[in-house]
């Protein structure tokens, strides 16, 4: 069956509206009568990914595809890319600028937190080209 698709733009360094895309996705999921823990996992994973694109990727795109049994979230940016994915996946590792840290972001929990909440995740990154993060959350 054809999924319902939602698309959002993510603006770079926009801390004030950070999380708008994930909160819109949450609004959609909460109308479907899903298990609350599923909605929560999707919202947290997408929020972290959205923030990564906002802080590190200079902004980007979010695409949400809702199927009857799962939601597929794709966040892509055209930023600098991640030089060492293994390192980035470690808890506490962060390359966030001071500005972001001062605001309580960039604690180095982004990717580990996405991994914790997602059923599947995939990182495609190329130095100087950008990063695309795919997150899959199953409804049951």
């Amino acid at each position: 069956m054809r999924p319902v698709e939602l698309n959002f733009a993510i603006r770079g360094s926009d801390f004030i509206n950070a999380g708008e895309a994930s909160s819109n996705m949450k609004k959609a999921l909460s109308r479907l009568g899903l298990n609350p823990s599923v909605v929560k996992r999707a919202a947290i994973a997408m929020y972290e990914a959205e923030l990564n694109a906002m802080i590190h990727g200079g902004g980007g795109q979010a695409r949400v595809q809702i199927f009857s049994d799962q939601v597929l979230i794709t966040i892509s940016d055209e930023g600098p890319g991640i030089p060492d994915v293994g390192l980035a996946m470690q808890e506490g590792w962060s390359t966030a600028p001071d500005l972001a840290r001062e605001m309580g972001f960039g604690a180095g929990m982004g990717l580990p937190n996405i991994k914790k909440n997602a059923d599947e995740m995939k990182i495609e990154t190329e130095i100087g080209q950008g990063t695309t993060l795919t997150i899959l959350i199953r409804f049951a």
Partner: peptide, 23 residues
Amino acid sequence: APNDALRLDADIMAALRKYEQME
């Protein structure tokens, strides 16, 4: 128990279609 007054339809797919139409 959760109150599902905001749910668009008892069936997920039907709710999804309604959401799409709503948007």
